[in-house]
Design a binder for these strands. Structure first.
Lengths: 336, 336
DNA sequence: CTGAAAGCGCTTACAG
DNA sequence: CTGAAAGCGCTTACAG
């Protein structure tokens, strides 16, 4: 079926295509009468302007790219939803790109998004080879980082104070009376994880405690991996009384490992997560965790991205948000 | 920064833009020498063809739309990931559209997708006013329904045998020895839910049992709603020994209600869900549920959509997949 | 206030 | 094998 074009409505309305275009965009001067006439015809013909064509004329595509490690991970799917809602509200659509934290995927996706002339890219994924992003930042497409950071990058970024978040976790555990703690960390290449661990250690240090290198386990970021690592920790015996997990996935793994080993949470082992994903409300016991103000972060990021695309030369901002402790059921005083 | 166009590489390579285009698309005949020359120049200039421009010439946009109720719902975010992977592999990107099962959002998104000339739309969301879809089906953009159905629609669809799924749940409970059961159903407008409940009731009927109208509760599809409905059921007293929830979200709500009321699952109340989302492995007890073969379904849907876009006239297919019972910890024999 | 014309970056017959 | 030219559906100066 032939789609109706601006020519069809121009002919039907007895005007030039320029007038139709002007009517649509509220540009130029058109007599009220003609405008109304044109709108009527558009309606009757069910005319839909082609954003493809108008994009080719240098207008926006009203499409945004969102790079995240994995949409099927609740933390990121929640981000995706927030982005989508804001975008939709502003007339944009969003192309979701799951990178699995693989640089090659990042690169491939970025190239794709460039070819499609997206109006901006929101990056919520880690990148090892920061060259990729630096190059991208040089180009014309506006980008912004969210919940991730690449050092010394000249791009806007909005993130949580991960160091503070780690400290918060430690302080909570400290206050409950724990002194022997362990941590499950994601792959040390993820900057946010590193910061969280640092913050955790620092708070311990301030309290006059130290954490043994042995008690900091590194693993991938899946439930399964968290479970494996936690199981190992438990098997070792002489276990800590509390476990800080750098994200909720790992914490859930830890919960499962404890359950299998017959270790009661929180009575025998307190577990604290990070991110406050929906998962943390679903476990039993429900997970104590550190929340990032994701909705606000997404809002800030989005606004920055969109306004940025208007005024090229704004100074790159780095907005840091405050994390918050959410106490639920997985932490308590250590058993004597 | 001016982006480099086909003209730039043509000039640089000393050929016409037609030759560059031919080289890129492997069309026409170009001497090997010229082709290589051209590719070298493209590389050097970091030339990226504009899909916008080529789309305007009637080529594909290599963009797909995905309509689902909510990306932040694990069931759908898993679908989104599968779709994305297949799409990416085939060179497509996907625009994710969360509809909240609202017709107005469906309409708005569809219009947006049309204006962007997507190559196809995957619909995994319910629609009340089927007119919307019927109209869409008349148009040129190929569509396919997944995990949802709109009666009498002349579109491809791939779905699970929800009736069978409901029966499976009932049979499992029956076999365990339950005779007094209740069901938590989503909004009766969702076709798949209706089928599931029907299947459940039918299996009961075959076993010579009936279910009282009172014991079939309808609610929205959130954890909170499931919790509220289940709490009501429990509060009523004279409770059933088993509860079939039409999806995992509701089942989780039921688990929470039981926990709050001090009703032990599965000892005092068996709970069975539907969808086998990641959530069902995270609860404690882990959720017995009915799985849909989502990956296969997405694969079939995707292939159908893409091939469909090539050959307009294929007969509309309706592919039905078999559900599977996944027994975990939330169901057991009823306490005497 | 309105329209003819050029142009966005490509692809595709069509000559040569 | 190669290039000139028309055209995809728009927008935007520029005349009138």
């Amino acid at each position: 079926m032939k789609t109706t074009t601006i020519y069809d409505v121009a002919k039907e309305a007895g005007v030039s295509i320029a007038s139709v275009s002007n009517a649509i965009n509220g540009k130029g001067n058109i007599s009220k009468k003609k405008r109304e006439e044109i709108f009527k015809v558009m309606e009757r013909l069910q005319y839909q302007p082609s954003v493809i064509a108008s994009a080719l004329m240098g207008k926006k595509t009203f499409t945004l790219g969102l790079l995240i490690p994995d949409v099927s991970n609740p933390f990121f799917s929640e981000i995706a939803r927030s982005v989508e809602d804001l975008a939709h509200h502003a007339g944009y659509s969003v192309i979701v790109c799951s990178t699995d934290n693989k640089d090659e995927r990042v690169e491939k996706y970025i190239r794709l998004l460039e070819q499609k002339s997206v109006d901006g890219i929101i990056i919520g994924t880690g990148v090892e080879n920061t060259e990729i992003l630096l190059q991208l930042a040089e180009k014309s497409v506006p980008i912004i980082m969210i919940a991730r950071e690449v050092s010394a990058m000249s791009v806007h970024s909005v993130l949580t104070d991960d160091f503070k978040g780690g400290s918060l976790a430690a302080q909570h555990l400290l206050k409950l009376g724990h002194s022997r703690m362990a941590v499950l960390s994601e792959n040390f290449k993820v900057s946010s994880s590193v910061e969280r661990v640092k913050g955790f250690k620092f708070a311990l240090f301030e309290a006059g405690l130290a954490i043994e290198a042995d008690d900091i386990l590194s693993c991938e970021s899946t439930i399964k991996d968290g479970k494996r690592a936690a199981a190992e920790l438990i098997r070792r015996g002489n276990s800590p009384t509390a476990l800080f997990c750098v994200n909720d996935m790992l914490a859930i793994g830890a919960l499962q490992a404890a359950k299998e080993a017959g270790v009661r949470v929180p009575e025998e082992l307190s577990v604290i997560g990070f991110d406050n994903t929906i998962l943390s409300t679903v476990t039993n016991p429900m997970l104590t965790t550190i929340a990032q103000p994701m909705e606000q972060m997404v809002k800030l990021a989005f606004d920055l991205l969109i306004s940025h695309s208007e005024q090229e030369d704004t100074i790159k901002q780095r907005i840091v948000m405050q994390p918050e402790l959410i106490v639920r059921e997985s932490t308590s005083k250590p058993k004597l």
